[in-house]
Amino acid sequence: MKEFFLSWAITLSGVSFSDLLEGYGVGIGLYLALAIIQAVAGFRLSVLARRLESSRKAIVARKLQGEYSSVRRISGNLANVELQLDTFFDALFKLIVALFILSLIMFAYALTHQSIVLYNWALWLILAYLLLAPLLIFYFSSRYIRKKCEPLTTDLNDLAARVQSAAFK
């Protein structure tokens, strides 16, 4: 098995850098698209903050003193999540910029060395870097953001249900 893998890895793939130029364009585009994660998460946090403010106004208008502590607790949790995500976004942005710059360097190298035929291992490594890595970063970042926001969403839904039920008593 080991011999098969080694012989496969060092076999020329028949694919040159010129054949991969379209893949580089897609990969670079995917790295640029990763910046959208921050915009989507920022929008998600602003929706949660708006819902919290709407609930707070309804509680004040209906004089539901028992819910003030819930609003303060959720507000504190929201601020904590915002700080955690801000730190996460700083690290994610640095990672994305570094990977984007590396993909541009790879693209420039491919443009200047178009006739080089790649080994199988190099071909799959480049494809994984350009196509799989951005998708994995997007998937795991989205999961992390959702995990951080989910308890807030649940708390806000519970609070809204309590406020609505109190309004109809």
Results as ranks from 00 to 15, higher is better:
166 A>F: 07
5 F>Q: 12
150 E>C: 10
117 V>T: 09
34 L>M: 04
117 V>K: 08
52 L>H: 02
54 S>I: 14
43 F>G: 15
39 A>G: 06
6 L>I: 13
42 G>R: 02
90 D>F: 13
150 E>K: 08
94 K>F: 06
47 V>M: 02
53 E>F: 07
7 S>E: 10
83 L>M: 14
97 V>C: 05
16 S>H: 00
1 M>K: 03
103 S>W: 02
132 L>V: 11
116 I>S: 08
67 E>A: 14
13 S>C: 03
104 L>Q: 15
132 L>C: 08
93 F>T: 09
2 K>H: 11
122 A>M: 11
165 S>H: 15
107 F>N: 04
90 D>C: 12
26 V>D: 13
131 L>K: 09
25 G>Q: 09
127 L>Q: 12
112 T>M: 14
26 V>L: 14
137 I>R: 00
89 F>K: 08
141 S>N: 03
118 L>Q: 06
55 S>M: 02
6 L>Q: 09
115 S>Q: 11
26 V>M: 11
35 A>K: 11
108 A>L: 13
97 V>Q: 07
152 L>P: 01
119 Y>F: 06
83 L>G: 13
16 S>M: 03
38 Q>R: 10
10 I>A: 05
88 F>P: 05
140 F>W: 11
32 L>H: 10
149 C>N: 06
3 E>L: 13
17 F>W: 02
112 T>G: 11
34 L>A: 03
161 A>I: 14
84 Q>C: 07
38 Q>S: 06
107 F>K: 03
98 A>W: 08
59 I>Y: 00
138 F>P: 05
143 R>H: 10
163 V>P: 00
13 S>M: 02
44 R>A: 12
124 W>G: 08
153 T>D: 15
26 V>H: 10
78 L>D: 03
50 R>C: 05
10 I>H: 13
53 E>G: 07
6 L>P: 00
120 N>E: 04
86 D>G: 15
23 G>Q: 13
58 A>D: 09
136 L>R: 09
54 S>E: 15
168 F>R: 15
82 E>T: 08
8 W>T: 07
26 V>A: 09
70 S>D: 08
61 A>W: 03
156 L>H: 00
52 L>M: 11
120 N>G: 00
15 V>Q: 03
77 N>W: 08
13 S>T: 01
78 L>S: 03
153 T>W: 05
31 Y>S: 04
18 S>Y: 12
137 I>N: 00
14 G>L: 07
1 M>T: 11
80 N>K: 15
167 A>Y: 10
169 K>T: 14
68 Y>D: 14
